[in-house]
């Protein structure tokens, strides 16, 4: 059962990342910078919420306490959410949303590529399906980072500012603790070796083409993976959980 507890924790983290980021992107629906991009953002949000559903359902099974995906998504306290701080950051302007998504997509693509090789069949299947979606997201966000970075002076300054503000949250993408080492030792998750280097390569090549500058300050801001969040998560949850909290134990 030890294996299940660790895997539960691991799958929960991924599920929460998808859930919280999917929620954030869904806030754009109806407010995008142009109709075509409004639709594109919603497609990303739908992919993420689909991933969250698959991952949280699976987490519920692994936990074996009768909680399903919805119970996990809507009925936990803030300290029990294990998403990255990066994904709970507010949308800001379109450039900040794109930059946040770009950092995440680059990480997610590399992660899913590795998880396809997992000995856990279900995790491998989820990774396989999600990878296709994520590759498209990364293509889309990379193109936008370049357009905004190398567009007008205003767009360059705006997205550089977002890059500077979000950079400190990127270190947490590579968070690993004893859960990861135990799963790795048990052969359930494949080696993540080189993931960070590959991420650096993707990110620096896109940012370079976008004429953007990576901040030199490498101060890390982490905590999400152990349930210690920024102020933003509480507000997000208050909204997301409203119906389930106000009308407990009902079917919708």
């Amino acid at each position: 059962m030890e294996k299940n507890t660790d895997l539960f924790e691991y799958v929960l983290r991924m599920g929460d990342d998808s859930l919280i980021l999917g929620h954030r992107i869904s806030e754009w629906c109806g407010h995008g910078p142009i109709l075509e991009e409004d639709i594109a953002l919603t497609n990303m949000s739908l992919d993420l919420i689909g991933q969250a559903t698959n991952l949280l359902e699976y987490a519920g099974e692994l936990e074996g306490k009768g909680r399903d995906g919805d119970a996990l998504a809507f009925l936990r306290y803030d300290r029990e959410y294990k998403n990255l701080l990066l994904v709970e950051q507010t949308n800001g302007d379109f450039g900040k949303t794109i930059m946040r998504q770009f950092f995440f997509d680059a990480y997610r693509k590399l992660l899913f590529e590795r998880l396809i090789k997992s000995t856990d069949i279900q995790l491998s299947a989820i990774a396989d399906k999600s990878l296709k979606e994520t590759k498209y997201h990364l293509k889309h966000t990379s193109e936008w980072v370049i357009r905004l970075g190398d567009g007008t002076e205003e767009s360059h300054n705006r997205i550089q500012e977002s890059l500077d503000a979000l950079w400190k949250y990127t270190a947490e993408l590579f968070f690993a603790n004893e859960v990861d080492s135990k799963l790795l030792a048990a052969g359930i998750i494949p080696s993540m070796e080189g993931l960070q280097e590959d991420w650096n390569e993707i990110v620096s090549s896109v940012l370079e083409e976008a004429t953007l500058t990576i901040p030199t300050n490498n101060w890390k801001q982490e905590g999400g993976r152990i349930g210690r969040h920024t102020e933003h998560l509480g507000l997000l949850l208050a909204e997301m959980q409203y119906m389930q909290r106000a009308y407990p134990n009902m079917k919708w």
Binding site: E36, I39, H140, E143
Partner: peptide, 17 residues
């Protein structure tokens, strides 16, 4: 039809729309 700033974006937008 749709609006896009360049051909690559037009393909992406067509996919999404």
């Amino acid at each position: 039809s749709l609006r896009a700033s360049d051909a690559q974006m037009a393909v992406d937008n067509a996919r999404d729309v």
